[in-house]
């Protein structure tokens, strides 16, 4: 199984996200994460999908997605030529005795503390998925009360790969 990141530019029509996720469900493709948001041109939405499968499945995924009427452009984002970023919000149980340790760990990872209550903290961090995984591994000694991860958003590096839209 290989992992691939596809970047889709789609027409911002109602139901477009369900059309795409529905395609993955009915053809049995994996979605590890999916993020969507308007582009600079509000007519379009940019969707980043992390998927995995054997080579032939990954080729089919691309072709089937390209076939959808709403899809304008599909690109594979290769790790070497792309910037990926993910955001995570982590609520950790931390009272007065453990609070400082958690804050110190967060500082090492350039994560910020977004909320403090007598018994918990909310940490916000952005970066690669691997960085977030590593940070979560470090927090293993603490109780994670809630975790929200966005999944990755990505862009290709440089100007060569930009799809200019009319």
């Amino acid at each position: 199984m290989k992992k691939k990141v596809f970047q889709l530019l789609v027409d911002n029509t109602p139901g477009v996200l369900s059309r795409i996720s529905g395609l993955f469900t009915r053809r049995g493709y994996n979605i590890e994460s999916i993020t969507a948001g308007q582009t600079a041109d509000p007519k379009y939405t940019r969707i980043t999908i992390v998927t995995s499968g054997e080579d032939d499945v990954l080729i089919q995924i691309r072709k089937q997605v390209e076939k959808l009427v709403d899809v304008r452009d599909v690109k594979e984002l290769k790790p070497d030529d792309s910037v990926f970023s993910e955001l995570a919000l982590i609520k950790v149980r931390a009272d007065i005795s453990s609070r400082q340790n958690v804050i110190s760990l967060s500082e090492i990872f350039k994560a910020t503390i977004e909320d403090v209550s007598p018994e918990s903290l909310i940490i916000e961090m952005t970066g690669s998925s691997q960085k977030i995984d590593a940070f979560l591994a470090l927090l293993e000694g603490y109780e994670i009360l809630e975790l929200a991860r966005t999944g990755i958003a990505g862009l290709g590096r440089g100007i060569e790969n930009v799809t200019f839209l009319d």
Binding site: D56, I59, Q60, K63, Q64, E66, K67
Partner: peptide
């Protein structure tokens, strides 16, 4: 006419 049919079942 459908590129997705090509290579779906046989290369």
């Amino acid at each position: 006419v459908d590129p997705a049919e090509i290579g779906k079942n046989v290369g």
